[in-house]
Computed example of a mutant assay.
Amino acid sequence: MSSFISASPIVQSPPRSAVRLTDVRKTYRSGRTRVTALDHISVTLTPGSFTAIMGPSGCGKSTLLHCAAGLDQPTRGSVWLGETEITALKPKARSVFRRDNVGFVFQAYNLMAALTVEQNVTLPLLLARRRTDRTRLEYVLAAVGLADKRDRRPAELSGGQQQRVAIARALITKPHAVFADEPTGALDSRSARQVLDLLRRATTELGQTVVMVTHDPVAAAHADRVLFLADGRLVGHMDSPTVAAVTNHMTHLGEW
């Protein structure tokens, strides 16, 4: 897979934080019972950082990701993406902001089968009625190693290649942050490594902020920092993680 092009587009100085959650709490009702999914979460992620979120099943990882990305609204607290408090936006405005400023990568690739690679990548621009910057498009396609497959459709690609299309689609709008929910969960080990290397390089070479939920210590070891959740609370973090250190920490949290 080709490396990122060195002559990246000039960007303005980033805001002090790319993602900021302050005293975020999320509760649900289940019958007569109130369930707390997130309990007083406060965290600040700097621009150009790669953060992994880990914890036992049901600890609130995906809920945290969805609240941070504007897919779900916290019960209380504030969420900022760049200089915008998305929790203060009305639903329609939040949806528009999310479309224009947030990138998503999920375990399911969510590609349109009838569209080509290039059309799938530029779909967010089409939906936003924005013109495609051809220089940016060429840049992103080369970055993910799919410049020679732009006219192929998803069925003609491997799972790893489809996930790289999804990453290119997430990067095309120059988002404040890319949120990835188990992005390697459906991939073999070789394809997973390629996708993780791509996300890693997106931060180091593009200055892209990436937030990834994962259950895999190997995936988490690609990040700059790992945040650990348990019972909806942040219970620790690890900088410069290694597979062994993450595995050991997760064992103490009762994951295995």
Rank of each mutant, 00 (worst) to 15 (best):
A7P: 11
A245H: 14
A168N: 12
V96D: 12
T203D: 02
T44N: 09
L89K: 04
A155C: 05
M1K: 11
V213Y: 02
V218L: 07
A166L: 12
V35S: 08
A166S: 14
Q107H: 12
L141K: 10
H215S: 11
V102G: 06
D181C: 13
N248K: 14
F104L: 13
M238Q: 11
E138F: 06
R76Q: 00
A202F: 04
H249C: 11
N248E: 15
F228N: 06
T214K: 03
N110H: 15
D151S: 12
L206T: 07
A93C: 05
A245P: 01
T33Y: 09
A220Q: 02
A192F: 07
F228M: 03
A52L: 06
D239L: 13
S158R: 09
T203R: 09
A114C: 10
R153L: 03
V96N: 01
F179H: 03
R201F: 00
S3A: 13
G207A: 07
P241K: 04
A168Y: 07
M54K: 01
V211A: 03
L38N: 00
T22V: 14
Y28W: 07
H40K: 10
V105G: 11
D133G: 04
P183D: 08
M238H: 01
V35C: 10
S2A: 15
T22I: 13
P14Q: 09
P15H: 06
A7F: 13
L199E: 02
R16L: 15
H249T: 15
L127C: 03
E138C: 09
Q12R: 15
L198K: 08
K26Y: 00
T116E: 05
V102Q: 02
A230G: 01
G232K: 04
F228H: 04
T44D: 15
Q208A: 13
A155H: 14
G145H: 06
D100C: 12
Y139R: 13
M54G: 02
P9A: 06
E83R: 10
E83K: 06
G254F: 01
S2I: 12
L45S: 02
P217C: 04
D181V: 11
G232W: 00
P15M: 07
P9I: 07
R136D: 05
Y139H: 15
S57T: 11
P47G: 04
T22N: 12
L137K: 01
G254V: 03
R131H: 14
I10D: 09
I172S: 03
G31M: 09
A69C: 05
T27D: 11
A168P: 10
R150Q: 11
S240F: 13
R134D: 10
M238K: 00
R201S: 12
R136Q: 11
V43Q: 11
R233K: 15
Q194K: 08
G48F: 03
A230D: 14
P74T: 00
